[in-house]
Design a protein around this nucleic acid. Structure first.
Length: 559
RNA sequence: GCCCCCGUAGCUCAGGGGAUAGAGCGCCGGUUUCCGGUACCGAAGGUCGCAGGUUCGAAUCCUGCCGGGGGCGCCA
């Protein structure tokens, strides 16, 4: 495996085409703006070659020549490039390119050698990124609204890391304020055998919390009322937070930092944040309150930091928290928020600007639309009051972690999403996660069979020039796309591109498998083509596994 | 009133300025002596909400309108 032909990936091809253009321009054969980057497409129509580039069309204007003329020049030069079998002008000025079989087939070897690293890149190298998501009150179980973020936030972090960013995930614990007191009061009331206060929390979990706290600390009930409230509040907080953490662990969503709002206040970070804003000159006093002039930076109204009664607003905490993140060395703070928080976008951006940062770089807010659920063809109405709130845990129990995560990640976050529970448990093609996992399991099975037949494909190596079948080419080009998919998913903060890609890769594999026999039949001898196809299988398995891992979904060898 | 999101096949939805707009489901019809048929192939099905604009080129970018969903706090 050390003397196979050099690989020609789409990225390589883009560079090669650009070099052709630059050379022509340097020689004076072609005018116009030197292209910063050359677009390479994978044409849908096979008559248009393996790859195509519209570079001549984009160059035509600045070069002052017809696109087809430019395309002819570039194509002629491209014909001599190693790994390019053919380059021809088509249509209004596209250049259709066909790769040499060995240059395309060599990718399988590269993928297998790269292993888990294939797909990783350096697009975001050097960027320190904080991804904050969920950030629920520790006053109850995580529900469906949090679950989308648990999946998407985690996948986003993995995708950003794959693109080279230094990523840290963070959960902001809202453990301060009246909600906590209401929570504590609710648990205490139940423990005392009294009804929950009108403005309290009503779920059955409150009863469970009260019961386990009383079992552990019967002495709490003897405390004076105010001390008792604190005791129950703190004990319930500890239990509930642990429950959230445990469920998220189960959901394979890992947080590097659990950041307590209390610690933000206790550490003096709030004062430091306030100081930073005063230095920047955007803080002012009015009507006895202290304000931040966020309207200087596109917010529709100024915001109160300290109320006239001297109390900090929630906004003050948010602001200090942002400054704290920056102080901890993050270049970018990404926030994943629900649609009900879209009003926060301009506010957070303005906060960054008020702190002296570039709000287009330092803050990014992703707004997610709501999640609905269906069962038996009918929408499940979710209501806190009616107690039909679905928790993360219940969803996992019903459909499993893989199906839940995959189907939540599969859609752009800014589009509303309806989970069909009946579909998610189906082990059929209708269920995309099974379709992709099945492809992985199928390949694993082929590789197992190869090993059992004593075919040691890995040490035997392969001849990449043998992968000339149409379906082999399709599959190789699909594999070649993966790094660009990961890069764009990271750059655009759109992790859904990964599962969508995996589905197309699974299709390409099934099509290949359907048309190309991998293992020798019966007692046929092992031919070079079998080895080449085994490498192709192994490469596909690797990319499916890498992509599924990026989604936090397992890649099973058997199903 | 102001702000955000959405409008693409019968349904659920992909589609970062490129050639003849795609997938799954559903419907109709096919494919297997042997590697996982939980697969594959084919057919039918579209004024990409409407109207302008930018461009060599628009589902994609811009403006306006129509339709649907969500949101506005000296609350936390």
């Amino acid at each position: 495996m050390d003397d196979y032909a050099p690989v020609m990936t789409p990225e390589d091809l883009s560079v090669a085409v650009r070099e052709c253009v630059l050379a022509l321009q340097a020689e004076g054969a072609l005018g116009g703006q030197p292209p910063a980057e050359v677009v390479i497409e994978r044409p849908k129509n096979r008559d248009h070659g393996d790859y195509a580039t519209p570079v001549a069309l984009t160059l035509a204007k600045s070069a002052g020549r017809p696109p087809r003329e430019i395309a002819a020049l570039v194509a002629a030069r491209l014909d001599g490039v190693a790994g390019v079998a053919e380059a021809e002008v088509a249509g209004p000025g596209f250049i259709n390119i066909r790769l040499a079989a060995d240059a395309q087939g060599a990718l399988a070897g590269q993928v297998v050698e790269s292993g888990a690293d294939y797909g990783r890149g350096s697009l975001l190298a050097g960027r320190r990124v904080n991804v904050e998501f969920i950030s629920a009150n520790p006053t109850g179980p995580l529900h469906l609204g949090h679950t989308r973020w648990a999946a998407v936030g985690d996948a986003l972090a993995r995708v950003l890391a794959a693109a080279g960013a230094e990523v840290s995930t963070e959960f902001y614990i809202n453990d301060r304020g009246v909600q906590m007191d209401r929570f504590g009061a609710s648990v205490m009331a139940v423990a005392q055998g009294r009804p929950v206060p009108e403005d309290g929390y009503h779920g059955a979990y409150i009863t469970d919390l009260a019961a386990s706290i009383v079992a552990e600390h019967p002495e709490f009930l003897a405390l004076p009322e105010d001390e008792q409230l604190v005791a129950f509040r703190e004990a319930a907080y500890t239990l509930q937070l642990a429950q959230q953490q445990q469920v998220l662990e189960l959901f394979r969503t890992h947080f590097d930092t659990w950041y307590s709002e209390r610690s933000l206040h206790d550490s003096g970070a709030v004062e430091r944040g306030m100081e930073r804003l005063r230095e920047q000159g955007h803080v002012f006093e009015l009507d006895g309150a202290t304000w931040l002039r966020t309207t200087d930076f596109g917010d529709d109204k100024d915001r109160v930091l300290i109320k006239a009664d001297g109390e900090m607003t929630y906004f003050a905490s948010d602001t200090a928290y942002y400054v704290d993140k920056r102080t901890r060395g993050f270049d970018t703070a990404i926030y994943l928020l629900g649609a009900d928080h879209h009003g926060y976008v301009n506010r957070l951006r303005a906060v960054a600007a008020c702190a002296g940062d570039d709000m287009d770089v330092s803050v990014e807010v992703l707004i997610g639309q709501l999640v609905k659920m269906m069962r038996d063809g009918e929408e499940i109405k979710l209501s806190k009051r009616a107690g039909t709130l679905i928790t993360l845990e219940e969803l996992v129990e019903e459909v499993g972690v893989d199906a839940a995560r995959y189907s939540l990640i599969r859609y752009p976050v800014d589009s509303p999403l309806t989970l069909d529970l009946d579909l998610l448990v189906q082990r059929t093609n209708d269920n995309p996660v099974f379709y992709v996992q099945y492809a992985h399991a199928r390949i694993a099975s082929v590789l197992r069979n190869a090993a059992e037949s004593g075919i040691d494909w890995r040490t035997a190596g392969y001849d990449p020039a043998l992968l000339v079948h149409e379906r082999e080419g399709e599959l190789l080009r699909a594999l070649a796309e993966f790094p660009a998919v990961v890069a764009s998913a990271a750059e655009l903060r759109e992790p859904h591109r990964v599962p969508r890609y995996l589905e197309s890769l699974a299709t390409a594999y099934h099509r290949f498998y359907d048309a190309c026999r991998v293992l020798p039949r019966g007692d046929e001898p092992t031919e070079p083509i079998h080895l080449a196809r085994l490498w192709l299988c192994a490469a596909t398995r690797q990319v499916l596994a890498n992509g599924l891992t990026m989604c936090g979904v397992t890649a099973p060898d058997r199903m």
